[in-house]
Simulated assay, not measured.
Amino acid sequence: MNKSEIHAGYDFESGMFSRMRSWVDVASWIRLTRIPRILASPSHVAVVLLACIATRTIASFFAEGPLQPGRFWELHSHIQLLVAMFQWTGPLLGSLLAAVLLIIWIPVIQFVCRGGAALAAGKPLPRAGQTLRLVGSRLWRSLFVPILPCLCIVALMVGVFLIRLPSFVADVPLVSGITGWAIGVAAIPVGILGFGALFAVPLALAAMVCEPTPDPIDSLSRGYESLYRRPLSLAWYVAFSGAMVFLFGILLGGIGGASVLAARIVTWVISPNGVQIQSAVDAITMVVVAWQTTLAFGLLGGVYLLLRSDTGGQEAEDLWEPPAAPVEPLPELPKEAIDG
């Protein structure tokens, strides 16, 4: 037997490393560390800043006293603001205001989200005009993303209420106990749908601008699939993203603090002006909040790509690119101009 016929054995180590191209193939969450570069994009931060100013302006018409912008991670402050708006305006006008805020924020979220997804995929930031055209062309369909889960929840709640009808006919403890058990079991799908919407709706908004065929139902199904098929992956990505937002919040807070100190020095020299310093502090705070919110929305795009890959979809690098705008051909010169 010659040496060519002798089996040399399997080289598992070289086989594994030959398939690895970079560290992101080992730990895909490293892609999220590319997204903070979006903070250097004036267009993305400016869009979020305008949305923050519009929201604060609208809320100030119904608020009792001045509104202070809260940090992005202070979810309780945002929830308290929404609850207060419903209390100040009533259910009907409050629902209308909520719809107006959705119309303001959905395109903003998608605009920034698309940029974050591009960075996570290892691509440069797309041009602002191209992304704005993409978001605008899909805005009306994107508005159905938060509406569809609400309609499904209402339909399920009607079904749960029908279970209660026998207790109105026979108001006895036995019937009430049986219908109560039935109501409890029937309410579980409502809880699954409602709790899942907290994660599915943001992921669906990302899907609407990252996939070639924007379908609200398909996008929502992707969001629910990411939550209930890969809950640990989703929890890890959310925790890592939250830590990044918090750490950058400290960094941006330091920048904001130094800016406030500089503004105080300037406005208190020679002739102190209290209104001027308060306005300067408000402006600096709004910019810091817009910076931090931009990072959070950008991370949403990266998280969507990672979850799409984890659930068996395309790889993160395979981010769909919208077709470029057609280039108008230059007008042809008349024959006389060429002959002359």
Results as ranks from 00 to 15, higher is better:
Q314H: 11
P231M: 08
P66T: 10
D318Y: 04
I265E: 08
M85S: 13
S137G: 15
M244E: 05
R71S: 10
L82D: 12
L330W: 08
G257D: 08
G242Y: 02
R164E: 11
S60A: 15
M16R: 08
L39K: 02
Q276I: 13
L198R: 06
W320R: 12
A128V: 07
L203T: 05
T57P: 00
D310I: 01
G180H: 09
A170M: 11
A337M: 09
W29F: 11
L193N: 04
Q80N: 14
M16L: 12
Y224G: 06
G274W: 13
A283H: 00
A206N: 10
A128E: 08
R164G: 13
S219Y: 02
S176K: 15
I163N: 04
A121I: 05
V288I: 07
S77G: 01
G302I: 05
T57E: 07
P149Q: 08
L306A: 08
G313S: 10
G194M: 12
P322C: 13
L132T: 11
L82Q: 13
Q278D: 15
W105L: 12
P146N: 13
V303Q: 10
I35T: 06
V281G: 01
D282F: 10
G254I: 05
E336S: 13
I277C: 05
P334V: 06
I147C: 07
I250H: 00
F62K: 02
P216Q: 07
A99T: 14
D171E: 12
D11P: 02
V175N: 04
G249R: 01
L162A: 14
L96C: 09
G115R: 04
P107T: 12
I58P: 01
S142H: 10
L93D: 00
R31C: 06
T293Q: 09
G249P: 00
L148G: 05
